[in-house]
């Protein structure tokens, strides 16, 4: 290090000044811009540059949208330019940049020459880091939301199944006892009608419970849960699902089973809504260390590259999100007129 000559250091500093992605400004005591590098020129609007060249001490304010202090996200109170005594070695500032609008920068404002009052103002673009952080947060949040949703559904589903449904069932049994007591025909007819209503109510509660989250999924595994679900789909929508499971009732981690179940549910619902078909095929099998789920229909299909999806367009996104929770991935193959196939692959 010591062997480096003054000349070499100057050369390196000049290169850094010229090629760095960081914007560097030099201010004099009065706040006038002495010089700035090309990265700095690049982010500022033309009129700001003009007024800087003209020596306007407050030219930077035309671009500056305030910095972040403890009180506010964007403020001008005790501005870094005007308060030389405060520590501005690292702070966040918002600038209105050329072509990109207002974006946050990490900035430092330091005196480098006390005698002449020269200060350097350096800016580093934070957008990229923010995006990375945001993505990370988003993933974490999605994961937590999905988990919270599943837990809550499970709770309500259990409550309905073990609490409400049981109560209705015992009322039904008590009502049936009336048939063996000495009551006249008129009453008996009424009792029978009530029995019918109660039975339908019981079915409704059970459906609701299963729809929220099937207890079979936790107790008996995917295969059983799927069979119940497809049966229900057939009764409700008249949709026939040809289901083959080659797992021999094997059980997997709870999270994996939930993901497979939900992704399949979504894929089947999509087929029901948009494929315009009355039957479809679902295959569940293990292959090459992966658990695979295929949902195949021979419906109308769709253009994968279409920018205007039918429906919300969130379904496919949701499936991918869920799959990512267990390091799995989804593939959607479709072509107009050739049907659609959704594949889910989860490493075991």
């Amino acid at each position: 290090m010591k062997s480096m000559s003054e000349f070499q250091l100057t050369d390196l500093l000049m290169k850094m000044y010229g090629n760095s992605a960081e914007a560097i400004f030099f201010f004099d005591r009065t706040g006038k811009v002495l010089t700035m590098n090309s990265a700095a020129e690049f982010i500022l609007n033309a009129e700001v540059l003009d007024s800087m060249a003209a020596g306007d001490a407050e030219a930077i304010c035309m671009s500056c949208r305030g910095y972040t202090n403890e009180q506010e996200l964007q403020t001008c109170i005790s501005c870094y330019l005007k308060s030389p005594d405060e520590d501005f070695s690292s702070f966040q500032v918002y600038l209105d940049t050329k072509g990109k609008g207002v974006i946050p920068y990490t900035a430092s404002y330091q005196t480098i020459d006390v005698e002449n009052g020269i200060r350097v103002f350096m800016l580093r673009d934070l957008t990229k880091q923010y995006k990375t952080q945001e993505m990370l947060n988003q993933k974490l949040i999605t994961k937590n939301i999905i988990k919270a949703q599943e837990d809550e559904r499970k709770r309500i589903s259990r409550e309905l199944h073990d609490g409400v449904a049981q109560e209705v069932l015992s009322s039904l049994v008590e009502l049936r006892v009336l048939k063996y007591m000495n009551v006249d025909a008129e009453v008996l007819k009424k009792v029978q009608q009530t029995e019918g209503s109660l039975m339908r109510l019981l079915d409704d509660i059970r459906h609701l419970s299963v729809e929220l989250r099937p207890a079979t999924l936790d107790d008996l595994g995917m295969e059983a849960a799927f069979r119940t679900h497809f049966k229900w789909m057939e009764k409700n929508y008249g949709l026939v699902v040809h289901f083959t499971a080659e797992l021999d009732s094997k059980r997997y981690e709870g999270e994996i089973e939930t993901v497979v179940y939900r992704v399949c549910q979504e894929a089947v619902f999509n087929a029901l809504k948009y494929a315009g078909t009355e039957d479809l095929t679902v295959r569940l099998f293990e292959d090459d260390g992966y658990l695979k789920l295929y949902v195949i229909d021979e419906g109308i299909g769709f253009n994968l590259n279409s920018i205007h999806p039918k429906g919300t367009g969130l379904g496919l996104y949701g499936m991918r999100e869920r799959a990512e929770l267990v390091e799995g991935r989804t593939t959607v193959l479709s072509e107009p007129g050739k049907g659609t196939s959704v594949r889910l692959e989860i490493p075991l």
Binding site: R200, D204, H207, E234, K235, N236, Y237, G238, V240, E278
Partner: peptide
């Protein structure tokens, strides 16, 4: 279509 044959109607749906 014969879809109707498979359907069990539900109250309110």
């Amino acid at each position: 279509s014969n879809r109707y044959r498979r359907i069990v109607l539900q109250t309110g749906k």
